[in-house]
């Protein structure tokens, strides 16, 4: 079972969390002014990288707060977790969460 560090509660078992897919997708400010293609991109298209991935998570069985995580999808290593309002942390060049 993964162990995930909630920015507010600390390390907890993955059963307390849910993953909500790719992070840092802002809702368009004026949805009615963008094209169908742009809107479709917003609601449907997500990255599925092999390697470093930015994700949204919630600590449902804990503080019920949302946060972002940087996870290596190959190794499941969590490189960083941070609040939605925090700037995106820099990924240390020597820690890509590789095996």
């Amino acid at each position: 079972m993964l162990q995930i560090t909630c920015p507010w509660c600390g390390p907890r078992d993955a059963v307390e969390f849910h993953c909500h897919g790719e992070a840092h997708i802002a809702r368009p400010e004026k949805p009615h002014e963008i094209s169908d293609a742009e809107w479709g991109d917003y609601i449907f298209f997500r990255k599925n990288p092999k390697g470093v991935h930015f994700e949204r998570w919630t600590h449902d069985a804990g503080c019920r707060r949302w946060f972002n995580a940087i996870r290596n999808t190959v190794t499941d290593a969590f490189i960083a977790t941070y609040a939605p309002t925090d700037p995106i942390p820099e990924i240390p060049t020597d820690d890509q969460g590789d095996a």
Partner: peptide
């Protein structure tokens, strides 16, 4: 209302 969640998708073909 100019916007609410889901409104923009009504215009999808």
């Amino acid at each position: 209302k100019e916007d609410f969640i889901g409104k923009r998708s009504f215009a999808r073909p």
